[in-house]
Design a protein around this nucleic acid. Structure first.
Length: 568
RNA sequence: GCCCUCGUGGCCCAGUGGAUAGGGCGUCUGCCUCCGGAGCAGAAAGUCACAGGUUCGAAUCCUGUCGAGGGCGCCA
C-alpha cells in the first residue's frame, strides 16, 4: 500500500517538474511518512516542505503543484494540503478492505518485508561462559537475539543463530579446580576452598554427579589429571544444561562455536588466532613494541592501540575475538550482528576497527544491551556471583513462565537498563502487557468457536481449522465501514512497515509495541461491533476481519517468541 | 580524568528533523439482560534536565553544563 502511495506522489512530482511548476534539479523522492496523528490521514508527504528552498517557492505553493497532479486512484479517498505544506493522503475503504484479504492469504507470511533481499546474516548472542547457569541478563540477550533473528528472517534475510563458547580462558581452569575441590569434599577429604573459585551450589551438584557416575577413583589421582578430566565433564554438563534451558524458551542455535578451536594448530602449524594476526599485519595495522604485538586500532578511531600478543607470548582475549570475527566473515555472511552486554561496550570500537582492517567495514553491527535489575515487590533483588547467591534465568522462568519472561525482556529498547519486576510479571492483570495481547487472541478464538457452533468446551478443536471452515472467502467486506473496523484494518496494514523498521534498526522491541496497538484496535472493535448477529452478511464480513486479526496476532506473537493461546 | 549510553506528566516508557509530544500504570468518572470485564469510553496531569547553536521546522542533530548507569588491564 505504501508503494502505491509513493508511486502516486512520485509521478505527480515528476509531472510537476515536466510542466515547469518546479525546477528540474530538485530531488524526486516522494518523502512519504506515517503521520503521528491519524486525523492527518494514512500517509503524508513532506516533499513540499523539503523542496521549498531548492525550488525557491513557498511550501504550500509546491504542495498545490504536486497534490493537484496526483492521479485518480480508487485506493485513495482524499488528498489534502494541511499545515505549512503537508500533503495528506487518506486511503479509501476499498484499500483497507484489500488489506484483509492479503492478511488471510498470507497466513504465517503476514507482514513479511524484503529489506534483506536474501542476504546472509549471522546473529551471535547469549555466548555465556560455560562455567555455570545463565543469569537473567543472559535471558534478556536470549529473548532479544532470538526475536531479532526471527524478525530478520521475516524481513527477507537468510539468518543463522550462533552461540560463542568462551571455553579457552583461565575461568575454565578455575571452574575445574572448583569442581575438583567439591568432589574431594564429598569424598570426605579435607580441602581448602579458595575464595576466587566458583561458590555456587551447582558446582557441588556437578561434583556429586561425577562421584555417582565414576566413584571415588579420582580422589587419589594426580591433581592435574583430575582437573583436566573434571574440566571436560563439567563443561559438557554445563553446555547441555544451557542448551536445554534455552530450548525450553524456544531459543535454538544453528552453531555452537568453541573458542578453543581458534587456538588449535592447523596443518600449517598456525592457529586461527595466529593466522588472523598475520592477516591484520598484511593490512598494515600491526606493529611490535615492548615485546608485544599490537593492533593499531587508533587508525579506525579507537582511543588507543590494542595488544594482540602479550610479551609472554600468550594471545589476548581480543586476539581470539579478531580470529573469531575473521572466521565469521570467511563463512560468507553479508552482515554479522553481535549482542553484547553493556559491560563489554568498551570493546565495540576495537572490534569494529578489526572488522574494518579485515576488509569488512560496515558489515559488523554490535548491539549493546543494558543490564537487567530484578525487583520483587518493589525491592531490588541483590545478587552476588562471589557467594553464589543469585536468581538464575532458569529460576526466573520457573517463577514467571517463558511467555512473560520473553515478552518483558523484549519490550524495552536495548539502550535502556531493564527493571524486571517479578511480582508484576506473574500478575494476570491489565498491568501485564503480555496478557493484554494474548487475551485478544484468546478472545478471537472464543468468538470463532462460538460462531462455528462447536462445543466450546472441546479443547481438541483446532482454531485454524475452525476458521477455515467458517470464514467465507466471498464475505462482503464493503460492509466494514465502522470507525473501529477501519482503524483495525489500518493497523493490520502497518505490519510490514513495522517488520521493516524493526529489522533495519535491529530493534525487535518495536514488535511488542505493534502487538499491543493491534490488540488494542481489536478490543475497541470488539466493544463497538458485535460480530455474531442475525445479520448473516455483516456477520460474514466481521468474521473475516476477526480471523485476519487472529492470523496477524499469532504471527506477531511468534516473532516475539511468545505463544498465542486459544484459551487463557 | 577519559569513553559509551541515558535524562520525556506522580511512576514506567514510545516517539524514522515535521503538524496540537503519544501509550501504560496510578488517580477520578462512566460502561456487563449482550460473542471472554484479563476488556472499553472519558477526565485531570508536560518549561521533552538546563543553556546556547544549526534548520523553513529540534524531544530528535551539534556544543557546553548538571544528573544517572556502565566501561576504561600485555584479565577473560
Amino acid at each position: 500500500m505504501r508503494f502505491t502511495v509513493e508511486d502516486l506522489v512520485s509521478q505527480a512530482l515528476s509531472q510537476a517538474i515536466e510542466d515547469g511548476a518546479l525546477p528540474e534539479d530538485v530531488p524526486r523522492d516522494p518523502m512519504i511518512e506515517r503521520p503521528r496523528d491519524p486525523s492527518h490521514g494514512d500517509y503524508a508527504s513532506t516533499v513540499a516542505l523539503r523542496l521549498a528552498k531548492a525550488a525557491g517557492k513557498p511550501p504550500r505553493e509546491i504542495a498545490e503543484a504536486v497534490a493537484s497532479r496526483i492521479g485518480e486512484s480508487e485506493l485513495v479517498d482524499s488528498v489534502e494540503i494541511a499545515g505549512p505544506g503537508f500533503i495528506n493522503i487518506r486511503l479509501a475503504p476499498v484499500a483497507l478492505q484489500a488489506i484483509l484479504a492479503d492478511v488471510r492469504s498470507a497466513g504465517q507470511d503476514f507482514g513479511r518485508a524484503d529489506v534483506g533481499e536474501g542476504r546472509r546474516v549471522q546473529v551471535e548472542f547469549v555466548s555465556a561462559n560455560p562455567v555455570g547457569p545463565m543469569h537473567v541478563g543472559h535471558g534478556r540477550w536470549a529473548a532479544l537475539g532470538d526475536s531479532l533473528a526471527r524478525v530478520l528472517e521475516h524481513a527477507g534475510y537468510d539468518v543463522e543463530r550462533e552461540f560463542y563458547i568462551n571455553d579457552a580462558g583461565v575461568q575454565m581452569d578455575v571452574f575445574a579446580k572448583s569442581v575438583a575441590a567439591r568432589y574431594l569434599e564429598l569424598c570426605g577429604r579435607d580441602v581448602e576452598f579458595a575464595e576466587e573459585w566458583y561458590q555456587g551450589a551447582y558446582v557441588t551438584e556437578i561434583a556429586r554427579e561425577i562421584l555417582e557416575e565414576e566413584g571415588e577413583r579420582w580422589a587419589d589421582a594426580d591433581s592435574s589429571e583430575r582437573e583436566a578430566h573434571f574440566k571436560e565433564k563439567a563443561y559438557a554438563q554445563v553446555l547441555a544444561h544451557l542448551e536445554r534451558v534455552l530450548l525450553d524458551v524456544g531459543v535454538g542455535f544453528d552453531v555452537w562455536f568453541s573458542e578453543q578451536t581458534l587456538h588449535e594448530l592447523a596443518d600449517d602449524g598456525l592457529s586461527s588466532v595466529e593466522r588472523s594476526i598475520e592477516g591484520l599485519r598484511a593490512s598494515g595495522h600491526v606493529y611490535e613494541e615492548e615485546g608485544a604485538t599490537w593492533f593499531r586500532s587508533t587508525d579506525y578511531g579507537d582511543d588507543k592501540d590494542r595488544v594482540l600478543r602479550k610479551a609472554d607470548g600468550d594471545h589476548t582475549y581480543f586476539a581470539a575475538d579478531v580470529a573469531y570475527h575473521a572466521d565469521k566473515f570467511d563463512r560468507g555472511f553479508d552482515l554479522v550482528v553481535d549482542l553484547w552486554g553493556a559491560d563489554h561496550h568498551g570493546y565495540v570500537k576495537r572490534m569494529e576497527a578489526a572488522a574494518s582492517a579485515l576488509g569488512h567495514e560496515g558489515q559488523l553491527a554490535i548491539v549493546i544491551g543494558q543490564l537487567v535489575n530484578l525487583f520483587r515487590d518493589g525491592e531490588v533483588v541483590r545478587m552476588s556471583k562471589r557467594t553464589g547467591e543469585m536468581v538464575t534465568f532458569e529460576d526466573l522462568l520457573d517463577e514467571v513462565g517463558a511467555d512473560a519472561a520473553r515478552y518483558f525482556f523484549l519490550r524495552r529498547n536495548t539502550d535502556q537498563p531493564l527493571d524486571f519486576d517479578i511480582t508484576l510479571a506473574k500478575e494476570r492483570s491489565a498491568e501485564n502487557p503480555v496478557y493484554y495481547v494474548q487475551y485478544a487472541h484468546a478472545r478471537i478464538s472464543a468468538i470463532l468457536r462460538k460462531a462455528s457452533g462447536a462445543d466450546t468446551a472441546d479443547t481438541s478443536v483446532d482454531i485454524a481449522e475452525t476458521a477455515a471452515a467458517l470464514v467465507r472467502d466471498d464475505a462482503p467486506l464493503q460492509l466494514l465501514t465502522a470507525p473501529q473496523e477501519l482503524a483495525l484494518m489500518r493497523k493490520l496494514g502497518e505490519a510490514s512497515e513495522v517488520v521493516e523498521i524493526a529489522a533495519r534498526q535491529l530493534a525487535p522491541y518495536k514488535l511488542t509495541r505493534y502487538a499491543e496497538e493491534l490488540a488494542g484496535a481489536f478490543h475497541q472493535f470488539y466493544t463497538e461491533c458485535k460480530v455474531v448477529s442475525d445479520d448473516e452478511e455483516l456477520t460474514a464480513a466481521r468474521l473475516y476481519v476477526v480471523d485476519a486479526t487472529r492470523v496477524a496476532l499469532a504471527t506477531v506473537l511468534d516473532l516475539c517468541g511468545v505463544s498465542a493461546p486459544e484459551r487463557m
